[in-house]
Amino acid sequence: MTINAQDAGADTGAQGMTIVARTQSQMVRRRFFRHRAALAGMIVFGFVIVLSFTSIGFGGIPGWWDKDFTATGALVNQGKPTLGLIPEFLGGSGFHFGEHPFGQDNIGKDYFALTMRGAQQSIIVAFTVAIVATVVGAVVGAMAGYYRGKAEAILMRLTDVMITIPILVIAAVLGRKFGESGVVLLGIVLGLVIWPSMARLLRGEFLSLREKEFVEAARAVGTSGTRIIFRHILPNTVGVIIVSATLSVANAVLLESALSFLGLGVQAPDTSLGQLINEYKTAMVTRPWLFWWPGIFIIAIALSINFIGDGLRDAFDPRQTRVRA
């Protein structure tokens, strides 16, 4: 008879009964999948990614939606959305997409295709920002936390200077300069702005772990500092890195949306969710669907990623988990 233990640590029970310990990764997965908000966020975010990238296609691969986000046309029904969501038994027209489910903009472009393109660009920028910020912040925080001394002083003073300057101001200046160069380059530039929070967080982890016995043992046998950092200490901070990187994605979505809303992010002829809101903010009263759809997708992306981040935080650090009665 085999029983899975609730917590780590193998043990032997009564005669004929073996308690099998779960590994750390198994416990993390178990705690994450028991986090209902995180699961809901993962489903919503996965749905947004699949919908946006498969509908209009990406990178030369065609999608299942037959309209292009750059094509103009005649206004159908004054550009109103043709999407039906109210069932017939409630007096509605039933569920249907119609020719222009999200409506059309002022010059007849299909707004569903525009919104999907905006979601694609916002997601690409957000993930690029998170990857760059995580890599730079992890390297700076690891070096400062392990080597201490002059290296820590120089790196952390640089980090303090970056923190004192408002992120939106730096991002606005850089976004205006690099916004026309493509979303990937824009994401890299923005990632080089928001790394300080990761660096400070990881430095604290390294200051604690560098005094552990396994690090002292590695030093005693002559292991180099670089190998200790990347082979011994860094793997023990993977939980902190994953959670911080996940939350950076949500922050990057909002940052890109804010810059595009100010006209300093993704530039025409391309588009993003923030740019769509900026372009049609004056239509809030007369044609509100031009404002609603990009806003709904921004909220859905940011909230779902935040919920995923909360679930990962609770999974990697059980002390954060709320105890149920």
Rank of each mutant, 00 (worst) to 15 (best):
T2I: 14
N4K: 14
A5C: 11
A5F: 07
G9I: 02
G9T: 14
D11E: 13
D11P: 03
T18S: 10
A21T: 01
R36Y: 10
A37M: 12
M42I: 03
F45I: 04
F45Y: 13
V48M: 13
V50N: 05
T54D: 03
S55G: 09
G63Q: 14
W65F: 15
D68I: 00
D68H: 13
D68V: 00
L75K: 12
V76K: 11
K80V: 14
L85C: 05
E88A: 12
L90N: 12
G92C: 08
F97K: 09
G98R: 00
H100Y: 15
P101L: 01
G103N: 09
I107T: 13
D110W: 00
L114N: 01
L114S: 06
T115L: 02
G118M: 06
A119Y: 02
Q120N: 11
V129D: 01
I131S: 08
T134H: 10
G137A: 10
V139H: 09
A142H: 01
Y146K: 06
Y146E: 07
R148H: 08
A151V: 15
I154Q: 07
M156G: 00
R157K: 09
T159V: 13
M162K: 12
I163M: 13
I167N: 11
L168A: 10
A171Q: 08
V173L: 15
R176H: 07
R176I: 08
K177N: 08
F178N: 05
G179H: 02
E180I: 05
G182V: 00
V183T: 15
I194F: 07
S197N: 12
L201W: 08
L201P: 06
V215A: 08
A217V: 15
T226C: 04
I229L: 11
H232K: 04
I233P: 00
S244N: 15
S248V: 12
E256M: 13
A258Q: 09
L259D: 02
S260A: 12
S260R: 04
F261T: 01
G265A: 04
V266R: 01
A268F: 13
D270V: 00
L273D: 03
Q275D: 07
L276D: 02
V285K: 14
W289S: 12
F291Y: 13
F291L: 14
F297D: 05
I298C: 10
I308K: 01
L312M: 10
A315I: 00
R319H: 13
R322H: 05
V323M: 06
